[in-house]
Design a protein around this nucleic acid. Sequence first.
DNA 1: GCGTCGTCAAGAGCACCGTTCTCGACGCAG
DNA 2: CTGCGTCGAGAACGGTGCTCTTGACGACGC
Lengths: 235, 235
Amino acid sequence: MTAPATARARARAELTREILDAARAQLATDGADRLSLRAVARELQMVPSGLYRYYASRDDLLTALIVAAYDALGDAADRALAAAPAGDHRRRWRDVCRAVRTWAVSHPHEFALVYGSPVPGYRAPADTVGPATRVYTLLLGVLTDAARAGQLAPAPGGEALPTGLHEDTTALLATLDVAALGAARLLRAITAWTQVLGAVGQEVFGHLAGAFRDDALFFDHTVDLMADLVGLPPG
Amino acid sequence: MTAPATARARARAELTREILDAARAQLATDGADRLSLRAVARELQMVPSGLYRYYASRDDLLTALIVAAYDALGDAADRALAAAPAGDHRRRWRDVCRAVRTWAVSHPHEFALVYGSPVPGYRAPADTVGPATRVYTLLLGVLTDAARAGQLAPAPGGEALPTGLHEDTTALLATLDVAALGAARLLRAITAWTQVLGAVGQEVFGHLAGAFRDDALFFDHTVDLMADLVGLPPG
DNA sequence: GCGTCGTCAAGAGCACCGTTCTCGACGCAG
DNA sequence: CTGCGTCGAGAACGGTGCTCTTGACGACGC
């Protein structure tokens, strides 16, 4: 698939990317459900039906946008973690969370696409679950690092995995190396990540409604509380 | 406006309500941005333009639906609080939170309408801010009751209101009687409510993705952690 | 009791949308 | 250089929110 590289194949790959870029630009300004195949086609000076040569449907284009958003968010988180000091686990946690928030507030529609109300009539295909778990596994890695370094406060619970998890989730966690975290702390980690996402969502979706003079400070407050929750030592 | 009660006025009020009910039914099945004036009109066997005699625009109808959703959620919370034992403040907190979740999972689209990604192009008018704060003030009341009864764990911070709040929020809180809560705890209460909403949103919007066998247990876990956070005594 | 007037239902029409189809043109492999 | 396959153009279908005009009908003043 990658080999032929005829002029036609290259032109096709290029146009496929241009379509995605134009769609992302329109998504950034107008939002997911205002995404219009016709407008994208206009932008690229082609006729609407021409897009169907590259994406089978609006949903297909949406899926590509979702994967792109997950990847952009994952990249931002990766960069934040790489830039954080190796030994300061609480700060690594905080910086990754901050990167998530920063990316979300500067790409609100893309954040909404992946973590907001689902787009009506759209059903996420399996291709999206991989990129979707990137930040989640990254934060779990931060915690296991801290646990291995003996930097995590003791937490109750002894089983390898929390009860109440669905079998698929258990299987996913088994592929990671989370044994150093106890069951109770793993459950708290899932809770903490859910809460961080929830806090970002509340802010991005405007439900904080300007209650705070600086939403970033409120977010830091939440991230700190969640760091306490998972047993990260105070910086 | 309420006085005349002519047959015409009554018919008008009735039809206004029927339109709202039909729209709510359509919202419940199809979602907010699939809400179609034409479909509502079809349902009521009238012509689409006829609806404009009762709601000036699609946005007006949307506003009515938002207020109705806030009220339904507020009513559910009120009922839960009324049914909870007066002295058990932690249980009162938990029951109200549970009622919020229960209402949300059984009315996902209405929940998304008020607490999800904002409907693009729609700007909430001032009429919606009153109903929007109902559950929030209700939970603050639970906490102040507990504080007055001396049932809240001590928390740091001495000022009357948390710093970092916007002036409008400070003004709103001043109308409530939250002096019994310290500044730090008030901030934590706001955090806790944000987190509860976030947890409900994650579940309703499908981002828990079936990670748990029973999402209600996970939610209870979160609510418990948040009760700890605001200093409610263990039940 | 009649005529005016405001309110309302109805319909036509505009500018969009996603999607499907056909058709002519053109690049490229044989 | 011929034929296949891809490509973009264009038209069409049924849907959307919304505006504007038209005509009927009940209420109220005189």
